[in-house]
Write a protein that binds this DNA or RNA. Structure first.
Lengths: 150, 150
DNA sequence: ATAATTCTTTAGTATACCTAAGGAGTTCGA
DNA sequence: TCGAACTCCTTAGGTATACTAAAGAATTAT
C-alpha cells in the first residue's frame, strides 16, 4: 500500500483519492466479511435483520432501496431470513400488493448477539485510536454515506 | 447498562461508530460495484491486473495474501484473466512449484482505461467537496487501511 | 371490464468467496 | 539416496450475493 505523501493523495483536483478510496473500501469490506463466524448469516441478511429490528416492519422495496440493491436480490436475502425463522412475511392490509417483513423474537435476539460479535474486533481497533482519529472517521462516514446515496 | 470508558464512543452492542462504519463501507462497496460498465471485468480481476501492471510478475500466493483471500479464490480470479488473454501463466524456473502471473499488453491497456472509467464518477463527487473534506477522507483512508491490514 | 401500473417472486446467470482434497515440486532426515 | 513432509497450485463442490428478464398478483385508471 503506497499511500505516500498527502500531496499525492490530495492533489489540486483530488485525482488519486478516488482510486485510493476504492481500494481501501474494497479491502475493508473483505476484511469485514472474513470476520464472519462459522455458520452465521451473511452480511446482507444480518443488516436487513438489524434494520427490521430498529425500524419496524418494512416492505421489500423499502429494504432494497435502502441497500441500493435490486428488489430481486433483496427478495432472496429476506428469503434466507424467513426460512431460518428470523423474520416473517405479512401481506400489507392497506395495499395487498405489498409484503411487510418483520423480525421474530429469535431474529431480534440473533441481530443483537451477532452484531456484537462481528463488531467486537472493529470496535477494539477503533477504541485504540485517538479521539480525534475517531472523529475523523465518523466525519468521513457521513461524507461517504452521502456519496453512496448520490 | 454500564457506562464504562468505551461506551461514550462505541455503543454497547456495536450500534455506534463500528456499526456505522460497517454499514457505510458495505453501501459504498455496492455503489462502486454498481458503477461497473457493461461487460467489464469484475472488481477483483481488475485489481489483480492493476497490481500485475504496477509491480510486475507475482506468484499466486503473493497475490492472494495481498488481497487477504484464499489461494483457491485467487486461482479462480486469475483464471478469468488468463482465459480472457489479459494475463499469462509462467512456471518459475527457480522453484518450479510456483507460477508467475504477468499482464499482457492487452491487460495493461485494459487496466489503464478501465480504472480511469471506473474512477471518474467517484472523482467527480470528491472534487465537489471542500478541500478540507477531501483531507478528512484521505486521512480516514489511511486509518482504515491500517485497520484492514491488522 | 380491460388495460396499465406497481409490488414481489421465480428463473437463470455471474462474481467472488470458502473448505477439502489432490497433484506436482522441493527439502530434509534417516 | 530415498521416502516423508512440506509448499504451491489447482480442481471440485458449495454458499452468499448480486444482476436481468419475465411471470404472478393486486391495485388503479380509462
Amino acid at each position: 500500500m503506497e499511500l505516500s505523501a498527502n500531496s499525492a493523495t490530495v492533489g489540486p483536483d483530488g485525482a488519486g483519492l478516488g482510486g485510493e478510496l476504492r481500494s481501501t473500501v474494497a479491502r475493508l469490506f473483505r476484511r469485514f466479511r472474513a470476520e464472519r463466524p462459522e455458520g452465521a448469516l451473511g452480511d446482507t441478511a444480518l443488516e436487513v435483520l438489524s434494520r427490521l429490528q430498529k425500524h419496524g416492519p418494512q416492505t421489500l422495496t423499502e429494504l432494497s432501496e435502502h441497500d441500493r440493491v435490486s428488489p430481486a436480490s433483496m427478495s432472496q436475502s429476506v428469503d434466507r431470513l424467513t426460512s431460518a425463522g428470523y423474520a416473517v412475511r405479512a401481506r400489507d392490509m392497506h395495499d395487498r400488493r405489498k409484503v411487510l417483513f418483520s423480525a421474530t423474537p429469535d431474529g431480534v435476539e440473533l441481530a443483537r448477539t451477532a452484531r456484537a460479535q462481528r463488531n467486537s474486533w472493529l470496535n477494539a481497533r477503533l477504541n485504540a485510536l485517538s479521539a480525534e482519529d475517531r472523529r475523523t472517521i465518523a466525519r468521513a462516514c457521513t461524507l461517504l454515506g452521502d456519496i453512496a446515496d448520490s
